[in-house]
């Protein structure tokens, strides 16, 4: 159900781009207006979501840890899994953001004969996630060459490394293969595994199909239906310098590609794809477990008007003395 709905949604999006540019001829709309609108929606949406998260309550350190807390000096503490200061928190965050450490701990439970339950580590999701995200990062950096002039030499070097195997012409870029393969795996994983299929929603399938649409249209443009790249770079560089021109040589597949990218950009703030910002704001990852070292006071505690014993005694000293009660201070 979710699969068909999401697939249909992406197919309809592709048809909109095809009909809009080929039949209706709204090339400026799909090449300029929609991309601008999408970027504005993306930037404002992301900032809005982050500020909304920032306003929510962070009452106390949440020590969901996987190791020994720092206590006495002769007990060895697990610094990375249970960081007690900023430095080790930064280390944990680094490994989380760049190497998805939490996902690496993924386990799978199977009921075997007995009946007995077995837990085993599975790294497939982690591996496919790493393959996808790193490819996406490299693809994104590679695409910067369309938006900047002159192209810096390190970017060309990176691209040459990406095409290290020199297969075919244009040279097949490793990340192109890896990103399509990993997305396909991440999709199949949701469909093949019964439990996961039961859990999966359109919000899980739609981004996968959208990303597949984007990567496949990009791959098509590079390897099969060639386009005039110079006019595309002129459009892209025009977009970032606010003087865009859609040349007549820009092809149909490019419009499909850029329309799907625009939809993705606008969709990110509304979806679970916000995890790119959310990972930095995970309280279980970014807070040091120093609950026992430092006193944390609830930031929204109301101001309580207290009446200390000293003040009490000052007020009733004479009466207390008269009644024979002991007092701390005589005067």
């Amino acid at each position: 159900m979710g699969v068909m709905f999401s697939l249909l949604a992406v197919v309809v999006l592709i048809l909109i781009a095809v009909a809009g540019t080929e039949l209706a001829g709204w090339r400026d709309l799909f090449g300029i207006v929609i991309p601008y609108a999408a970027v504005v929606a993306f930037v404002i949406g992301v900032i809005y979501r982050v500020l909304k998260w920032a306003r929510s309550a962070v009452p106390f350190r949440i020590p969901t840890t996987c190791g020994q807390q720092k206590t006495l000096p002769w007990i060895k503490s697990s610094k990375l899994d249970n960081p007690h200061n900023l430095f080790w928190v930064l280390c944990r965050m680094f490994l989380e953001v760049f190497f998805f450490r939490s996902l690496f701990r993924n386990t799978r439970s199977v009921v075997v004969e007995g009946p007995r339950i077995l837990y085993s580590p599975t790294k497939w999701l982690w591996a496919a996630g790493m393959a996808f995200h790193w490819s996406l990062l490299i693809v994104l950096i590679r695409h910067c060459k369309y938006f900047i002039e002159p192209v810096p030499s390190w970017l060309v070097t990176m691209q040459n490394l990406d095409g290290f195997f020199q297969i075919g012409l244009p040279i097949i870029l490793t990340t192109d293969v890896v990103i399509v393969a990993s997305l396909t795996f991440l999709f199949l994983r949701r469909v093949v595994d019964q439990k996961l299929r039961y859990l999966s929603l359109p919000a899980d399938y739609f981004p996968l199909f959208l990303l597949l649409g984007i990567t496949v249209s990009g791959v098509f443009m590079r390897y099969f239906t060639k386009t005039d790249l110079v006019s595309i770079k002129e459009l892209a560089i025009g977009l970032v310098s606010f003087s865009p021109v859609v040349s007549s040589e820009v092809g149909l597949v490019f419009f499909v590609h850029i329309f799907l990218v625009s939809v993705l950009l606008a969709y990110i703030p509304l979806s679970k794809l916000m995890h790119f910002a959310g990972v930095f704001m995970s309280p279980t990852r970014n807070l040091a477990n120093n609950n026992r070292v430092r006193r944390h006071i609830n930031p929204w505690n109301p101001k309580v008007k207290v009446h200390t014993y000293e003040e009490y005694e000052d007020e009733y000293r004479d009466l207390m003395k008269a009644a024979g009660l002991p007092v701390d201070k005589e005067e």
Partner: peptide, 8 residues
Amino acid sequence: CHDYLGVE
């Protein structure tokens, strides 16, 4: 063109 598009 090759330089413009960062192609070697």
